[in-house]
């Protein structure tokens, strides 16, 4: 199993709608938190391999209302 965290910056104030869309994107999306600071969401994913992490991050990046993503893969 691979755990990864995707930091997401939005470009719209409809964070509820975006949160909902990200939760329904892929079975590997475990949680989506709206956070304070220079990113707007932290998405936690739990999947079989890193290829799926990449797939999820790419899908989030392509959503309208998302400006940028940055992915961190857990090593422990």
């Amino acid at each position: 199993m691979v755990t990864a965290y995707v930091m997401v910056k939005a470009s719209t104030g409809d964070v509820d709608g975006l949160k909902h869309s990200m939760l329904n994107l892929h079975d590997g999306v475990e949680s989506v938190s709206i956070v304070a600071g220079d990113v707007d969401f932290i998405v936690k994913t739990s999947v079989d391999d890193t290829a799926q992490v990449k797939e999820i991050a790419a899908s989030i990046h392509e959503m309208s209302g998302i400006e940028d993503t940055q992915t961190y893969i857990a090593m422990d």
Binding site: A10, S11, G13, V15, I34, A36, D40
Partner: peptide
């Protein structure tokens, strides 16, 4: 950024 105005009003 302007979109964050409503996000913080709602959540913070």
């Amino acid at each position: 950024e302007d979109y964050r105005e409503e996000v913080y009003q709602q959540y913070a």
